[in-house]
Amino acid sequence: MDNTTLPGLIGYSLIACCVIMALVWLWSYKIKNAGVVDIFWSYNFPVIAIILYLFAPGFEPRKLLICSMVVVAGLRLGTHLALRVLKHLHEEEPRYAHIRKEWGKNAERKMFGFFQMQAVSNVLLAIPFFIIALNTSPDLSWIEFTGVVLWIISVMGEAIADTQLSNFKRQSANKGKVCDTGLWGYSRHPNYFFEWLMWVSYFVFALGSPYGYLAMISPAIILYLLTKVTGIPTTEAQSLRSKGEAFKKYQDKVSVFVPWFKRNNAHT
């Protein structure tokens, strides 16, 4: 397998991510905490970026730019999640505990499959990175710089949202309360919004490369996952279980996703 061709780059990236997730599953099996998968889902993107930087035949400055962006974003989010998960490493997050309960006696086997699907999703979502890293054009275009600007906004916005929520939870007086300050007063999920915007920025960056329009699949998948599968639905279901009426009032007051639109007694 030629590691400088698209199939080779995809193959090596997939092998690396699957091996990492298999090892993470073994760890999660030992400590009975599937929450660690979120940490390494984020860290797998820098792994893919390093593979692309080392082996993809694209224009060096372009590769350095996109790979640096992916490494910074992946390490920031992964480390933020690690700090949260490691605080209660031997106490599984409620959403994963709920999934484990639903899966019953087949939970660990299904969890292994879930971890491997996360590895596959890493490679699938990395489509913009492959497209960009294979572009040999010696000129960076304005659309690529537009993608960089959007990326800066998204990473800063997500970091601010994460910090605001962490600071809120750190105060003992807020135990059992719903964070509705800062960006969280305008969106129930500003972190998810900026995470999605980050993938939009990768798509915009990829538009400067041949077949860049194919990169649209990444923000589309992320939007679907966040709004329909593992993001907002599971997070809000857990919040309703743990905070009850307080979170229902918050749902009525604050927009589900877009941070600059504040609702006025409307329903999602």
Results as ranks from 00 to 15, higher is better:
V200E: 02
S154G: 11
S172W: 07
L140S: 08
S154I: 05
S166H: 15
P210W: 04
A206R: 06
L140Q: 11
S201D: 06
A159D: 07
I221D: 06
L183V: 03
Q164T: 13
L134K: 13
Y192I: 12
M156W: 15
L124D: 08
Q164E: 15
A237M: 04
A215M: 09
H189W: 02
V200Y: 03
P210K: 04
P233W: 02
A161V: 10
I217Y: 02
S172V: 12
T227L: 12
W142P: 11
G182D: 03
E195M: 00
T227H: 02
Q238C: 07
A173K: 13
S201C: 08
E158H: 15
H189F: 02
A206M: 08
Y213D: 02
I222E: 06
E144K: 01
Y250N: 05
D162R: 05
R241V: 08
L223M: 15
N167E: 09
L223P: 12
I131T: 12
E245S: 06
W184F: 12
W199D: 01
S172K: 15
K248P: 01
N167H: 12
G208E: 01
G157M: 07
L226I: 14
M198E: 13
W151P: 11
I132E: 06
G208V: 00
K177H: 10
G147E: 05
K228M: 13
D139I: 12
E144V: 01
L226G: 07
G212F: 01
L165Q: 15
V178D: 03
